[in-house]
């Protein structure tokens, strides 16, 4: 019975792949490729599947020119790419990524994000991402679980959070030369010069399209940029609110 349970647990573990940002999967002094072959045995991956997924990962993560270099000599970005490859060799159904982009340079960060997105689409791998990097969230996720003090605070989409918690918009407008003061009800003018203005409004009180249509009556618009509040602020605000409620 116990033996059966253990086997069961061990088989369950095979459907997971885990990347800990801070805990390496790779053997430090040998090339990543050697680690890959050892993982093949640890996970008992059939030869054909292993070769296929190894080649696929080498190509997708662009590992070919440092796969034979000892891990300790790799840069952080190179190592992280190898870490991700190492966690995916056995083709897990669920991939846990714990801080995958922590400390990475811009190029690697974008490469990792692109890869994860692609993995999710081609292999239908469920990716569970824990991160402090809000750009990771914006780039990758469609569902967010917000956890604080061991409790689930929120479960839903990013857009929903946006709608609910970030109703404030900043609008940058450029227009043809005019000395008229912009004056719209419920819209705060933060800055204004002869050709440029910075406006702030709350979309719960006045809709974006209304702001624009009212604006066109007052100035000849050349260009408009609308920014919602940065995602960090939104999340921080959510934590504050949800925490107070509970």
């Amino acid at each position: 019975m116990v033996k059966f349970l253990i086997k069961n647990v061990q088989n369950t573990l095979k459907i997971y792949g885990v990347v800990f940002g801070q805990r390496s999967q790779l053997w430090w002094d040998v090339p990543p490729d050697d680690s890959f072959y050892l993982l093949k045995d640890i996970y008992k991956i059939p030869k054909q599947i292993f070769e296929d997924s190894r080649n696929e990962l080498i190509e997708a993560l662009d590992l070919s020119h440092f796969i034979k270099t000892p891990t300790r000599q790799l840069s952080l970005g190179q190592r992280m790419r190898c870490e991700i490859a190492a966690s995916l060799l056995h083709r897990p159904k669920i991939l846990f990524l714990d801080e995958p982009t922590i400390g990475l340079d811009a190029v690697s960060k974008i490469a990792v994000r692109k890869f994860v997105k692609n993995l999710n689409q081609t292999h239908k791998t469920t990716v569970i991402l824990t991160t402090h990097d809000m750009q990771d969230i914006e780039a990758l996720t469609n569902r967010i679980l917000l956890i604080g003090k061991g409790k689930l605070l929120y479960d839903g989409t990013l857009d929903n959070i946006r709608k609910k918690y970030s109703s404030k918009f900043i609008m940058r407008v450029q227009y043809e030369y005019t000395t008229n003061k912009i004056n719209i009800n419920d819209v705060e003018t933060l800055e204004q010069s002869e050709q440029h203005a910075l406006l702030k409004f709350n979309s719960n009180i006045i809709k974006l399209q209304d702001v624009i249509s009212l604006l066109t009556k007052q100035v000849n618009i050349l260009d408009i940029q609308v920014e919602s509040s940065p995602i960090e602020e939104v999340i921080a605000k959510m934590y504050l609110e949800l925490d107070l409620k509970s």
Binding site: Q10, L13, K14, F20, R23, Y43
Partner: peptide, 18 residues
């Protein structure tokens, strides 16, 4: 200390052996 045990715990093999 360095968290390797966490790594081993998520692998499908006996812990003592690993």
């Amino acid at each position: 200390k360095n968290g390797l045990l966490d790594r081993l715990l998520v692998r499908p093999r006996n812990i003592t052996f690993q």
